[in-house]
């Protein structure tokens, strides 16, 4: 049946940066790769992102961050995910992420990092890899 095993992804932009073109384009690319993408828009607080991830029963939370605050945001969200018991939900992050920060992000539990310049193919391959 067609309804089997769709992967649900929440695309959210935490904090104050007001630039969501990238997030929207990634949402489209993921749709075209067969994902169900919940797009929650700009200026989301971490509480909003958590509640949305819970209510939507997503498999992945994808953050788009351009503000430079990716390290504290991801760390806080990962802790919240643990508190809420969302152990089977992956966190991925894209946007303006300096390469030297990627090891730190992975260390704290971010599943995939897609810094600016990553191709759509790179994103979908990276996401697909999580569900192999």
């Amino acid at each position: 049946m067609e309804t089997k095993n769709k992967i649900r992804v929440l695309i959210a932009k935490p904090g104050l940066d007001g630039h969501d073109k990238g997030a929207k384009i990634v949402a489209l690319a993921l749709r075209d790769a067969g994902y169900e993408v919940i797009y929650s828009g700009l200026h989301q607080t971490l509480d909003q992102i958590m509640q949305t991830a819970i209510q939507e029963a997503v498999d992945v939370i994808g953050l788009s961050i351009m503000s430079g605050a990716h390290l504290p945001i991801c760390e806080k969200l990962i802790n919240m995910m643990k508190e809420q018991g969302l152990f089977d939900v992956y966190l991925t992050v894209g946007g303006v992420i300096p390469h030297q920060d990627i090891p730190r992000l992975k260390e704290m539990g971010v599943a995939e990092v897609f810094p600016g310049g990553t191709s759509f193919e790179g994103i979908t391959t990276g996401m697909n890899k999580l569900f192999k």
Binding site: R31, G34, E36, V37, Y39, S40, G41, T45, D47, T52
Partner: peptide
């Protein structure tokens, strides 16, 4: 075509998320 979807309705309702 892809079976994927963009679910954007709740974008307008996010102030009620919490």
């Amino acid at each position: 075509v892809s079976g994927g979807a963009i679910l954007g309705d709740r974008l307008r309702m996010q102030r009620h998320a919490t």
